[in-house]
């Protein structure tokens, strides 16, 4: 894992520093004199050899210094940290929705193969992976806000007439709950439902597909017949014996889905003006301020690598046959 992490830093450095046009020019502006550009290059360390710049980049990153956003004027890391709770809230909500929908659907479609529920699972998983997330978000707005008027305007995570509760966890729904502020909680949940639903579709699609295949495979194995022969009830056979063994590939895929959710959050947050990390990245792109994009990519990759390590640990806990050196 260490070489991969190192490689992630190198690739991010290449993307952030080497490929774009002269960063000094971006800072001082197009109207500046060559001397000013030269001075800025020295200030940014661009006159140093590349390996030295790479080491400085890694050293600064390890100290939490990822540069400054041209748009907000703040350090990129503090901008991202400020917006992280909203993204976390959205992502966790989407995972909850995905689990609630996908687990029953995936398991049932395997148990009731070739019935309408299996067919439904097939349609859900195929369209879920084919639909552009940003478009699905817009469709939801079109139906539930513009046409039916039951959803709030897609403008952030709270109605404008409400004031955010005092930040304790920085996660709006939790803070409102702790504070016992029901109108704010209701408004926050209302704003959360559609974006979380939009973000959950890809995860639902993959989970249903994996669970179905995984359950079908497990159900045909000898130990299931043995469990039945021992007189276990159907429910116990399915849930204790089959489901648990079907979980290993599902947990692995779920880890991979976290990466998908990070990308999806950029799209969904943009559509719903959600005040999270994703919409920050989009506004940076639109302002041609690409440094935050590269920082976001670097941090996503680090986070994603850690998640996949956790997945291995969880799988070892589920299945004692799995060991890692």
């Amino acid at each position: 894992m260490v070489p991969v992490i190192l490689g992630v830093f190198v690739l991010s450095f290449v993307l952030a520093r080497v490929v774009p046009a002269n960063p000094a020019l971006l800072v001082v502006g197009l109207q500046s004199t060559p001397a000013e550009i030269r001075a800025e290059e020295v200030a940014l360390g661009l006159n140093l050899p590349l390996w030295r710049q790479l080491l400085d980049f890694i050293a600064a990153a390890l100290h939490g210094d990822f540069g400054t956003s041209i748009v907000t004027g703040h350090p990129v890391l503090s901008d991202l940290a400020e917006r992280l709770p909203a993204t976390l809230e959205l992502t966790v909500a989407s995972v909850v929705i995905a689990l609630v929908v996908a687990v029953p659907l995936g398991v049932l479609s395997a148990l009731r193969r070739d019935t309408w529920i299996d067919w439904l699972a097939h349609v859900v998983s195929l369209s879920g992976v084919s639909m552009p997330l940003f478009w699905l978000g817009l469709l939801l707005i079109m139906v539930f806000y513009s046409a039916l008027h039951i959803a709030p305007a897609p403008m952030g995570d709270l109605g404008i007439i409400y004031q955010s509760p005092p930040p304790i966890t920085h996660i709006l729904v939790l803070d409102a709950l702790i504070e016992g502020d029901w109108p704010v909680l209701w408004s926050a949940l209302g704003h959360l439902v559609l974006p979380a639903l939009a973000l959950s579709t890809g995860t639902i699609a993959i989970l249903v597909r994996m669970l179905r295949a995984s359950m079908l495979e497990v159900l045909h194995q000898d130990f299931i017949r043995t469990a039945r022969a021992k007189g276990n009830g159907a429910w116990r056979v399915y849930m204790v014996h089959a489901f648990r063994n079907a979980l290993v590939p599902v947990v692995t895929i779920f880890g991979l889905q976290i990466g998908y959710l990070l990308g999806g959050a950029v799209l969904v947050e943009t559509v719903f003006n959600w005040p999270g990390v994703g919409s920050y990245v989009t506004s940076a792109i639109l302002a041609s301020d690409y440094a935050p994009v590269e920082v976001f990519a670097l941090l996503s990759a680090l986070f994603y690598s850690v998640i996949n390590l956790c997945v291995d640990v969880v799988n070892a806990a589920i299945d004692p046959r799995i060991t890692y050196n």
């Binding site: 991969v4 992490i5 490689g7 992630v8 190198v10 690739l11 991010s12 290449v14 993307l15 952030a16 490929v19 774009p20 976290i258 990466g259 998908y260 990070l262 990308g263 999806g264 950029v266 799209l267 990245v281 792109i285 690409y290 994009v293 590269e294 976001f296 990519a297 996503s300 990759a301 994603y304 690598s305």
Partner: peptide, 18 residues
């Protein structure tokens, strides 16, 4: 592995921006 360490859309964004 390094390329796969990035979520795919995020890497595409980073490369596209670069």
């Amino acid at each position: 592995d390094i390329l796969l360490a990035f979520p795919s859309l995020v890497l595409a964004l980073a490369v596209g921006a670069a």
